[in-house]
């Protein structure tokens, strides 16, 4: 590859990138509380009305073993964790820029605020959509399509098929915005690109740190 066109982009520090805030507080329980739980797990004769036991499925309330024939699907203690924009951001933030040794998030090519997730009403039937607006580092960035393609490949590999992925150039950040947008969201052209061995190997490198 020739010399990078934008040799000196602004770089964000990894610590400045947006992170999921609620890093589960559950795990910070003191070692002694864990010990109490472990010891309670040793009980063969738990005759209490088994609040404890239903949380932890290796304690059988009835003292009998091996005869639970059904899995409990609802033992996951709290509600569903839907796919949200932070999750999408985490998926694509670590993609390497094709010409700088930095990630897309560090270069602020992808930003949390530019990711929109629209969930379908019914997960099993309706389509959901992810909309990502990318900001090229310079307005004539020739690699915007490549970056977009990399993001698309990454998301297609990591999102369930009910998601439709739309990738656009953020308004006013690229000279040939419309052309690039068309190219990025044209099924045929994306499919053709993905059959190009050389292009695939570049994308493989971009995704190497994911």
């Amino acid at each position: 590859m020739s010399d990078p066109i934008n040799a000196n982009p602004t770089v964000l520090d990894v610590s400045e990138l947006p992170k999921r805030q609620d890093t589960s507080t559950k795990n910070s329980a003191s070692p002694h509380d864990k010990l109490v739980e472990t010891i309670l797990g040793l009980s063969l004769d738990s005759d209490s009305e088994a609040d404890e036991a239903s949380k932890d499925d290796d304690i059988d309330n009835d003292g009998e073993l091996g005869n639970k024939l059904e899995y409990k699907y609802d033992d996951d203690d709290d509600e569903d964790e839907d796919i949200d924009s932070q999750e999408i951001f985490d998926l694509i933030a670590t993609i390497n820029d094709p010409e700088h040794p930095l990630t897309l998030a560090q270069l602020a090519v992808v930003n949390l605020s530019d990711i929109t997730v629209t969930q379908g009403a019914d997960k099993t039937k309706d389509l959901s959509e992810v909309l990502i607006k990318i900001t090229p580092t310079i307005t004539h960035c020739s690699l915007a399509t490549l970056i977009g393609l990399g993001i698309r490949v990454r998301l297609e590999r990591c999102l369930p098929p009910r998601f439709r992925i739309r990738i656009l150039i953020k308004e006013g950040t690229h000279q040939s915005e419309n052309q690039v947008n068309k190219q990025l969201n044209d099924k045929e052209r994306v499919a053709a690109a993905c059959e190009n061995e050389q292009l695939l190997s570049v994308i493989l490198q971009m995704l190497a740190n994911c």
């Binding site: 569903d80 964790e81 796919i83 999750e87 998926l91 997960k123 590999r157 990591c158 369930p160």
Partner: peptide, 21 residues
């Protein structure tokens, strides 16, 4: 990939990434 739990989806993504490579 559509699991209810985020950390489970994450492992699935990682495995798939590994496989693609």
């Amino acid at each position: 990939l559509d699991d209810r739990k985020r950390h489970i989806r994450k492992i699935a993504c990682d495995i798939r990434q590994e496989l693609y490579e």
